[in-house]
Design a binder for these strands. Sequence first.
DNA 1: AGCCTTGCTGAAAGCGCTTTCATAGTAGCG
DNA 2: CGCTACTATGAAAGCGCTTTCAGCAAGGCT
Lengths: 336, 336
Amino acid sequence: MSATRVKLSDVARDAGVSPATVSRAIAQPDLLSPKTLAKVRASAQRLGYLPDGAARALASGRSMTIGAIVPTLDSAIFARALQAMQARLAQSGYLLLVASHEGSPAAETQAVRALLGRGVDGLMLVGAERATETTALLEAAGLPVVLTWCGDGRFTAVTIDNARAGRLAAEHLIGLGHRRIGMIAGHLQFNDRQRARLAGARRALAEAGLDLPDSLVVEQALTLAGGRAGCAMLLELDTPPTALIGGIDLFAIGCLEEAHARGMIVPDDLSVVGIDGLDMSAHVSPGLTTVHVPTGRIGNLAAQTLLAMVARQPVEPETLLPVELVVRRSSQAAAG
Amino acid sequence: MSATRVKLSDVARDAGVSPATVSRAIAQPDLLSPKTLAKVRASAQRLGYLPDGAARALASGRSMTIGAIVPTLDSAIFARALQAMQARLAQSGYLLLVASHEGSPAAETQAVRALLGRGVDGLMLVGAERATETTALLEAAGLPVVLTWCGDGRFTAVTIDNARAGRLAAEHLIGLGHRRIGMIAGHLQFNDRQRARLAGARRALAEAGLDLPDSLVVEQALTLAGGRAGCAMLLELDTPPTALIGGIDLFAIGCLEEAHARGMIVPDDLSVVGIDGLDMSAHVSPGLTTVHVPTGRIGNLAAQTLLAMVARQPVEPETLLPVELVVRRSSQAAAG
DNA sequence: AGCCTTGCTGAAAGCGCTTTCATAGTAGCG
DNA sequence: CGCTACTATGAAAGCGCTTTCAGCAAGGCT
């Protein structure tokens, strides 16, 4: 074990200055004369001084920490967004405190409470739908909050147009002549992203005079296996769809799998379109047609926005990032 | 914005008790009489009191926060491990502070410094190889540290036998009659996991009287594209290998891709084996033979171990988790 | 030359909580 | 019953830092 930790006053004594000066050497170096600064830095260096974050946070009111609450870290999507956030935050000396709620609003509330208690300087959340208690907590705390993927018009947000993503997927399929299109969506409970994607697809179909009956929509857990299962259900219908939209790429990849297992050829026997634009989607076979979502940018921008808010700079209330259809081999013109 | 935050003393006044009592109501409820406890809780509830973590950390010396430093969050492997950690920690009221170093030892040092500064109660790191400065920092701090994937005999560790993973992959291929086996490894610089896997494979080959010349080993960035590129290089050799080992599943999946793009049939023309056991690997086509690594368990156990260490309970200096060969369709007996 | 800036540093008061230490009841015991 | 031994609470001293608020030099100005 170490000797008692070196503290600011030790550095001050060593450098022959007051604690205030050492503090300034760390936080506002330009207030000091070059000579003093050098002296303090030398002492700090030599003693191996590491400021105590808790004390700094308590005294200054800022923890240099940003919180992020996602449904799960175990998802290529959120992992990428968090990596991007973390990278951006690190540049500014901030650290990321993460929590996940696994799709439970109550767990999200708990997470917000925990992060707020830890004194995060800002908070990133996914989606706009949550327990009213959570929102109340957030508002009472009055700290910078950035919503991602979906906004609610109240909190600052970095979003994508999920409905448009659904629409693009559907329109692509409609354009290819498909008339009977199915969709596998994530559980719509507490998942506004999936709801919006489904609604967008449904809307596009309706505008084309097509219907998206409940029988052609299945809700599944957000996993590859969920995609397979959903695909299986849809393909076993009396009149199965000729094309499928996956609410996330993972679903679509599951569809590819399931179709393959059934001896069906994608895209000859079934067209499949995903939404997300995972790296993996370009590499499955056949390459997955998907609506690309700039996941990394969402994370980066969320971090940037939070940082700006912490610094009391003005920010866009809502930044809408573009989604884009990427056509690959998993979709083609409907037979006949 | 909110009114000034409710603090402990407000609750104390409201409940008609001393601050000490309120503090105890939070941290050591059984020290209070049921009556007092109820009174305090009621006040806290009504006022919406949320303890200030920074103040608690400063006064108590514990931040209820565990740090984790991984190469990147944007990897199915680390994402899963972190999710498992986070879930376990949350159960005990701890939060996860994450940082990534993107393969840079210097960045890792910085991250350690940042996390130590934030007063984490414990730290999870990946691998055993790091800048001596980092190790010095860790030792000086004298806080619970758990290494994952690889241990170094000094710090507590939750590991897998990476060499064995490489060996299992190689032996499987050797057993199938392959004589010319190539390997795609991650950059070996600052990556002891990859080095061990390569060494294990090489050892197995040597024991079978086979050679793994440098020409059959390529180092690539840890991405799917890296796997493809590595595969391409190996296949373009004058006498290309008949089987490939991917240092991570992503590489192996890249190989599947690349082989497919070249019109080669896996496993007829080329056998491919990965190491990791990604979910995705069961779903690519052909299904990937891989050495499964219990990634989630690593995270869970790392969390559990850290929690035990924080509580000053004795822990295993090193827990070795099993790896296991999972044979799927991407590997078969060598032709002729 | 006297006065006012401007620039740099120090003194000291907290930030909101935990934690000895001390105290006052309360019960148990011979 | 008087004494010990708890138990439940309060008083107060920090935890290590930041941040006004002053103060003192050293110039710049008229």
